[in-house]
Design a protein around this nucleic acid. Structure first.
Length: 139
DNA sequence: GCCAACGTTGGC
DNA sequence: GCCAACGTTGGC
């Protein structure tokens, strides 16, 4: 069964444009157990909302999981894992954190309730609502 | 730059 | 096992 997720990045460090340029990347550097557990639960084919933190925080694009969790080679601690994701599409219009907060359904999203969590699950209903706000046609 | 929220560390 | 101190993240 396909699942949805939200993955957060500071665009100064790694932006959605960077992902589009590279087409695919290792999603690494997660050093929080809850976020790590979410990474570990990802399966190939799962879809992700890509969220920019810091400047103009909000959802800017989508990505697809293409490799499930594996140990982060940049860490000598095997507890930390990466997944590989492929760029999906840039949203027709990005959806700001403020819009998520205002939306009756989306105000309950993990990213809103727990701002510091960098990888969080997204329900199918939340996914659809974000796509609608983003001006994306139904799939 | 400030501050709130939260996670981690370490003393006891 | 508790809790204070400290560090980090992220919104504003």
């Amino acid at each position: 069964m396909m699942q949805y997720w939200l993955i957060k990045s500071d665009p100064e460090t790694y932006s959605f444009a960077d992902l589009q340029r590279e087409r695919q990347t290792a999603w690494d550097g997660v050093r929080n157990y809850q976020a790590r557990n979410n990474l570990a639960a990802m399966q190939v084919g799962d879809l992700c909302l890509v969220y920019h933190s810091q400047t103009n925080p909000g959802v800017v694009g989508t990505a697809e999981v293409v490799r499930p969790a594996y140990p982060d080679p940049k860490s000598d601690d095997p507890r930390w894992v990466n997944v590989d994701v492929r760029a999906g599409k840039a949203l027709t219009r990005s959806v700001s954190l403020g819009e998520l907060r205002k939306h009756p359904l989306l105000s309950q999203m993990g990213v809103v309730r727990q701002g510091r969590l960098s990888v969080s699950p997204v329900t199918a209903a939340e996914w659809e609502a974000v796509m609608e706000l983003a001006g994306e046609p139904p799939r």
